[in-house]
Write a protein that binds this DNA or RNA. Structure first.
Lengths: 114, 114
DNA sequence: ATATCACATTCCGTTAACGGAATGTGTCAA
DNA sequence: TTGACACATTCCGTTAACGGAATGTGATAT
């Protein structure tokens, strides 16, 4: 069995650095393919292929504007990733708390924030 | 240029479903390789190889206990992933806010479907 | 020492991704 | 229509991941 397809889920889609860069570049604004090509150091075909992957997993939406096609992020599609990391969030907090406690040589104190 | 290595960063390491399952299984408790093999439906060599990848990117730590080796999650290593998703968090929140506002501003004048 | 347990590593065949070059498709202007 | 522009798709060679089988390594028990 080979590696999973890049379009199998969001995790595989954002595994590629260039695709993450595209998403970061796209945050909060519509951008044409040409804009992205200029922003990243990549050829136009490669950018189009990355955008295709991102579109297939729902991370970006397209809109035609004359000859150009404008892409936007659909942030909602990133939620599964965010929620998966949330599972581990309290654990790294607890680790930090324990480290702090040892460093300060104090008994445990409750932390309540959120 | 081929695909990035699974050990190149955390994003590539967690792209694989089985590795995410291992991490989820490992949350909050030390587990031996045998425990993981029993929990997932995978051969022992495959599990060991996945653990090697996770260890190389710092997502898990090892400890020997007699003949066995116990693995734990180092949740801290997941933070980069979490923080990257945080960039997009407020954007999907804004989307939800807009949906809520529409629902509140037009109490009963808009009925969809049925 | 030897057998056994628990795990790591190597070898193998299959499969897919990546960038670049070439080519295809659709839109606008004259 | 013709040509130019903006982007998508196809073809290609290179590279690495995946699981399973076989094998290697280290620790315990007798």
């Amino acid at each position: 069995m080979p590696r999973a397809t890049t379009t199998s889920d969001v995790f595989n889609a954002v595994a590629e650095t260039k695709r993450r860069e595209i998403l970061s570049f796209l945050v909060g604004s519509e951008r044409s393919v040409g804009d992205i090509v200029d922003a990243l150091s990549l050829g136009q075909p490669s950018v189009s292929k990355h955008l295709k992957v991102l579109h297939e997993v729902g991370l970006v939406t397209r809109r035609r504007d004359g000859r150009r096609i404008l892409y936007s992020v659909d942030a909602e599609a990133i939620r599964p990733l965010h929620e998966w990391t949330e599972t581990f969030r309290r654990h790294w907090r607890h680790q930090l708390d324990r480290i702090k406690q040892r460093a300060e040589n104090r008994p445990s104190s409750e932390r309540k924030d959120e």
